[in-house]
Amino acid sequence: MMAINVTAHQQVTVVEVSGRVDGMNAGELGGAIGSAIDNGGIYLVLDLSQVDYMSSAGLRELVNSFKKAKRAAGDIRLAQPSERVREVLEMSGLDTVFRIFNTQAEAVASY
């Protein structure tokens, strides 16, 4: 139901997620991002274009991952959240916390 693909684009780590992110698998997403940060990939782009559903459990992992990246002097920037994901980001005020870009390429280029 959820797939995660992590790739390196020079100094930027791109995490592409697809499917549904909820209480059942949000920890898996947090773990994947956390591993990338532990391995030195502190400049991250999270491509959410293929995520059609995210509950508060998913947002919690995004926030924890964001804090972890910031502690390592890095950042997590979001690319192309779907309408539904953008809606939950806005409801929780996280649209003003994360830098959000229209495309993955723009998010990568922002570093």
């Binding site: 508060s56 459990a57 919690r60 926030v63 939950v88 409801m91 929780s92």
Partner: peptide, 11 residues
């Protein structure tokens, strides 16, 4: 941390 789930439901 927490409280967002029920907050969304209220919206």
């Amino acid at each position: 941390q927490g409280g967002w789930g029920i907050y969304f439901v209220k919206q």
